[in-house]
Write a protein that binds this DNA or RNA. Structure first.
Lengths: 336, 336
DNA sequence: AACGTTTTTGGGAACGTTTGCACACTTTTT
DNA sequence: AAAAAGTGTGCAAACGTTCCCAAAAACGTT
């Protein structure tokens, strides 16, 4: 804001003190006498003094802001994560800057670099489904930018990570389909390079194995763009249907809704004959038709944990070398 | 970021120039010779110089950032607005800071004040459904903070505003219900103090009038918390059903989905007997059961227009005194 | 050759903080 | 009574920019 506001200097002048004394009084430092502190605090209150965060940032060489990259905020999973992030960040006096990659590598890189040049103190990121090359993140990290990954994490990057128990979530969902009598279960999933894709595929395979159902690679369809293009989804559905699946396990929020949409659009007659189980944090799932079984991730908590880890890195006095990967349990919400 | 990065000073020293010359060369000012410019630019490129936006902000007394307040990002209408805002803002080199009020006045005020103290250059805001008192905005505005309202706008506040054609949108939706044979049409709406509530009520009334249907106040139910509490919605539905409506016109995104949810939960037997038309920008509306007719707002465009107006205020050399209220048309998507 | 113009560059203050250091004054210790 | 220790405050530099003002260099004109 460009409008005038009182500064430490003003207070100092008004009270006949030096700026250093005022600054120290405001930050409640031990060197300052109680008397002076009271005086300063009272006057600051009176003139409604607000510290200028920009000046502070410049001096301290940090911005008290953290960057967030998600593919889309219009996705309940991510917006819940963001809520979790904010709940912790605001508490600790950080503010957050949100950017969307829209599942595009180019956009993701651009946004990260924009954020970095905006002097964020740390970065929370879920990779886009297109992303393969994370060297640009590595180099930022090497220069000292703390990074914590969540949800979609790279394998070969030593830092804190927070993920859902994707294996178990997928296993449970697939098992649920099997137990309700399905035998030809397709798997619709994200781009192959995402961590979640691999983990969820393993869970799916494990459930099949447990019930002695043969794993057929042709029943697995990958979507490079994570369901951002409806054409991609319709194509996948079109290829899947001839194999006559009686169930589909879908591995992400966007894909789950997109797949049902594609199914209804292209083959409405079979749409409610196929049982669907999918990852989604949509709070509208009860309204969907056909209804489905959903795997809900602890999104809010994921945001909180990731933020705590990030802030601990930011505020660490010495470089952090011990990293954790936190794994949070999912919840299976059965079709009603 | 705390890590070392080259500054203007470094460049100056390396090239044997003064900081002022380097600064001017980088900003391509006319005073500097082509030769020097080339030299500086090349070197800057080589050391990957990035201007420090914090220092720039401090000097120029502006932050190149704009604040956004919406009730919830997990709402397609708002997330689309945000996408519109970003599309313009990034173009003009502003970044955005998003805050959520969660329909709470207290939270809204807190967030605005937090943003203001973070030195935003301007504010884009859609009021929370609880908000009645906007004096805190007035005082910020008086101190020089440019503000543009969108969607939920106050009546008595002289600044730019961007809204949908709520009257027409409501009229169309209500007329659609009437034309499909409904005669007892309830209206479920937001808190009475919102601008959109009033405008949409008028559209509803006008449609009834046109078809000579008596307006019955008892068919109108207000939700103070905008559907944030499911109890509130269930209560409204409970009070409405005894009046045996054959159609419901619902005036906002959150309420529309919430109402269908409440209907299905408390009275599943009537849920698909009542025709529903409601404002919503959900992109999942095709999946809903019962299906509904929806009024879609031009959310993306609304964000764009609001941002353009805001930036024009921010960059105006002299105080703006002529304000516009832009009205954008809605789109009726009929139930299939 | 001396002067005025124009073009290009540099010095240094300022934006609002924080903080190392020095200083003055009290109080305690020997 | 002098030295040491403790307490409270102020000075000034620094963070990385921008920009006013002056100075230097280059050029043209008589």
């Amino acid at each position: 804001m460009r409008f005038e506001t009182s500064t430490i200097k003003d207070i100092a002048k008004a009270l006949g003190l030096s700026t250093s004394t005022v600054s120290r009084a405001l930050r409640d430092r031990y060197e300052i006498s109680e008397e002076t502190k009271k005086l300063v605090l009272a006057y600051a209150e009176k003139v409604n003094y607000r510290a200028n965060p920009i000046a502070r940032s410049l001096k301290e060489r940090r911005s008290y802001s953290i960057g967030i990259i998600v593919s889309e905020i219009a996705n309940n999973f991510f917006s819940q994560v963001i809520n979790g992030i904010e709940s912790i960040a605001y508490d600790k006096d950080y503010h957050v800057i949100i950017s969307q990659s829209h599942e595009s590598y180019k956009q993701e890189k651009l946004n990260v670099e924009h954020l970095a040049s905006r002097s964020i103190d740390g970065l929370l990121i879920a990779l886009s489904s297109e992303t393969q090359d994370i060297d640009y993140l590595r180099s930022l990290y090497a220069k000292g930018l703390p990074i914590v990954f969540f949800d979609r994490v790279p394998e070969d990057f030593e830092t804190h990570k927070v993920i859902a128990n994707n294996f178990k979530g997928s296993f449970d969902a697939t098992e649920h389909l099997i137990l309700s009598g399905k035998r030809t279960i397709a798997h619709l999933t994200n781009s192959e390079n995402l961590s979640i894709t691999k983990e969820r595929l393993e869970g799916y395979k494990a459930a099949l194995l447990k019930y002695h159902i043969e794993f057929k690679p042709e029943l697995v369809k990958y979507c490079q763009h994570g369901g951002m293009h409806s054409a991609e989804l319709e194509q996948a559905v079109k290829e899947l249907l001839p194999l006559q699946p009686d169930g589909i396990f879908i591995s992400s929020d966007r894909l789950t809704t997109g797949c049902i949409m594609a199914l209804k659009k292209t083959n409405p007659e079979v749409a409610d004959k196929i049982a669907i189980a999918g990852f989604t944090n949509s709070n509208l799932v009860e309204l969907f038709s056909p209804s489905l079984t959903s795997v809900k991730q602890p999104a809010f908590e994921m945001g909180q944990v990731a933020t705590e880890l990030l802030i601990s890195m930011i505020e660490a006095k010495r470089p952090v070398t011990e990293f954790e990967t936190k794994v949070l349990d999912t919840e299976l919400v059965k079709k009603r």
